[in-house]
């Protein structure tokens, strides 16, 4: 242990990288593809169904999102969503259902801290940043569009 700390840190990082198991890339990407694809497929069935009911393309789209969000909230509440996510990985994060899961899961857990500062605040733990950056970037795009169209 006589070496300078910086060198020790570098050597240790090398050792950690050598021993640390790599993520099972093929299994993970396959899982993401299948589960992400399946959720999109369910979305497509809902979309086609709503369009068949006479809804416009846009309305059918929002109805689909709302239904998927409902299902994700339900599955999160039942404790099933995180079990699926073990295999689905990003396949269960990227779809709108992952957004819903990221709202419900902290809100549910912080129920013990009350309705306002527990549920109300924690619904937006992850949804908050998503809305902030989504709204801000869309506003910026519109501003550019306004000045440069």
């Amino acid at each position: 242990m006589a070496q300078p700390l910086e060198i020790q840190k570098k050597q240790y990082k090398k050792l950690v990288d050598e021993i640390k198991p790599r993520p099972p890339l093929i299994r993970n990407t396959l899982g993401a593809f299948i589960f992400g694809g399946l959720i999109a497929l369910i979305g497509q069935f809902l979309l086609s169904f709503f369009q068949g009911q006479g809804l416009s393309v846009n309305d059918a789209g929002t109805a689909t999102s709302a239904t998927l969000i409902f299902l994700a909230a339900l599955f999160t509440g039942l404790g099933i969503y995180d079990e699926i996510a073990k295999y689905g990985g990003a396949g269960t994060i990227v779809p709108i259902t992952g957004f819903a899961n990221s709202m419900v899961s902290p809100a549910m857990e912080y129920r013990t801290e009350g309705l306002v500062l527990g549920v109300g605040a924690r619904l937006f733990t992850i949804a908050g940043p998503v809305l902030v950056f989504g709204i801000f970037s869309a506003w910026l795009v519109a501003l550019l569009y306004y000045f440069f169209r």
Partner: peptide, 21 residues
Amino acid sequence: YATAERQYRFPVEQGTQRPLY
């Protein structure tokens, strides 16, 4: 498990993949 997870990492019902390590 549940108190530590929610304090240090993610809520337990949040869909995440735990790395092998």
